[in-house]
Amino acid sequence: MHNFLFDFDSTLADTRDVAVMATQKAYEAKGLAIPSREAVVSYMGVPIEVSFAKMATESLSEAALTDLYTEFRAQYHEAEKLGISLFAGMGATLATLKNQGARLFVVSSKHSVPLQRNLDQIGLGQTFEAISGSDTVAHYKPAPDGILSLLQRFDLDAKQSVMIGDAKYDMQMGNNAGIATAAAMWGAADPASVKAEQPTYLLQTPSELLTIFK
């Protein structure tokens, strides 16, 4: 593999506690039933535009959902200051891949602005050739839009490209785009569901990414 496309949350960085805290506070602020930690974690990997309506026990109008998204992003902006951390070994692995000529990208369910802010926060702001946020695609994960856009924009060979992620949605997106997949088991909240997608590579640590570079 030569082109590495990374998910962000729970793949590059550990953001699970931040996401849970921001989600629960957003629902609470809007007077809604607060989703359990398990529910929030189970939907990590898909955009809030998909997951929030499903986690709500009430039927919410589009306006109410829009308000909830806005509240979540404000809460996340505060919560992220308390703790987004790069997974052990990830920084060194990315540096080695880049130095050896690998092309690095991010495909995330986050909007592009907070995604870039989070990358800056963990010292990866200049690491990636390009990022693809949920605001840049017509269809969210597991649709392949984010991957296909990068393949086209940067003339990347699909046969030399791999999607790295911690959730089944990442594996499905890679499959739908016709590229290889690598399961980031170090961040997987539901390992069984990830393995069920039969990823091309099953990786236990970030450093194992070096073994699939060609």
Rank of each mutant, 00 (worst) to 15 (best):
N3A: 10
N3M: 08
V18S: 02
V18C: 06
V20G: 10
Y27F: 15
I34E: 06
V41R: 14
G45P: 08
V46M: 07
V46E: 07
P47G: 11
I48Y: 05
I48T: 07
E49R: 13
E49M: 11
F52W: 09
E58S: 15
A64F: 03
L65R: 07
L65I: 13
D67Q: 09
Y69S: 02
T70H: 04
F72L: 12
F72A: 05
R73E: 07
Q75N: 14
Y76M: 01
A79Y: 06
E80W: 04
K81S: 09
L82D: 10
I84Q: 02
I84S: 03
F87D: 00
F87G: 01
G89Y: 00
M90H: 01
A92E: 15
T93L: 05
A95P: 00
L97N: 02
L97A: 02
Q100K: 09
F105T: 02
K110Y: 02
K110H: 05
P114F: 01
L119G: 07
Q121A: 13
F128D: 04
S134Q: 01
T136N: 04
A138I: 04
A138N: 05
P142N: 01
A143C: 08
L151I: 15
Q152G: 06
D157R: 15
A158K: 15
A158V: 14
Q160F: 06
M163C: 10
I164G: 12
I164M: 13
A167F: 07
K168F: 03
D170C: 10
M171F: 13
M171T: 12
Q172H: 04
M173G: 03
I179S: 11
A180C: 02
A182K: 09
A182T: 13
M185E: 12
S193L: 13
A196Y: 12
A196R: 07
P199Q: 06
P199R: 05
L203V: 10
Q204T: 11
T205C: 01
T205N: 03
P206N: 04
E208Q: 14
L210Q: 10
T211H: 12
